[in-house]
Amino acid sequence: MAEERVGPPERRLPLFRRQAIEGAPGTIKLAELPFAAKFVLRLDPAAGEAAFRQAAGLDLPAAPLMSVVNGERAVLWLGPDEFLVVAPEAEAGELAEALAAGLADTHHQFTEVSNYYTAILVEGPKARQALMKLTTLDLHPRAFKPGMVAGSNFGHAQAYLWLEHEEEGAARLRLYVRWSMAEYLWCALAEAGREWGVPEQEPVAGEPMLTESVTSRKA
């Protein structure tokens, strides 16, 4: 029996109750970056680098804690043989097929985590300072440079922080966090941004798991 899909598509967002928020102009901005295809790839770079490049169209990071970007695709270093592959949602199937075929002869593991992690964008000249309040990572520009990825604790949530881009002191960072911790981390980030005028975010307790309640919310 085929079931009809009920509910609005934004129901798939871990942070579907949240709108992008920001502080005073030129300080900090928070937004969820939804609907990207994400894969965790376990692969010995020495054995599978060439095959990966052929299949995915970009290199594996050459050094620990680094990332590689090609267009809208990116590969983030998570561990010595573990990488997060990010691509636009529409390319998920195509990428998975290409990697399965390309890495068929190499010992590897490839897991889709598109709905396991979500990404929170933390952007602006105060982005580093806001994040410093939540983590023990050294986020000084001298230590945490553009392109770097680091897993750490942010408040009580484990997440991977990626400094995607930085220009004239304005950093664009992404936090890859597990779905169940996204709501918490969102509120913690908003709290960290309060001094620059980021609006307070009320934590939402419990989640309506039934699509009907979401539909009625929309009505």
């Binding site: 620990p64 561990g79 010595p80 897993g151 750490s152």
Partner: peptide, 8 residues
């Protein structure tokens, strides 16, 4: 084990 980082 580097639990929150590289998990190794």
């Amino acid at each position: 084990m580097h639990a929150a980082g590289c998990r190794r």
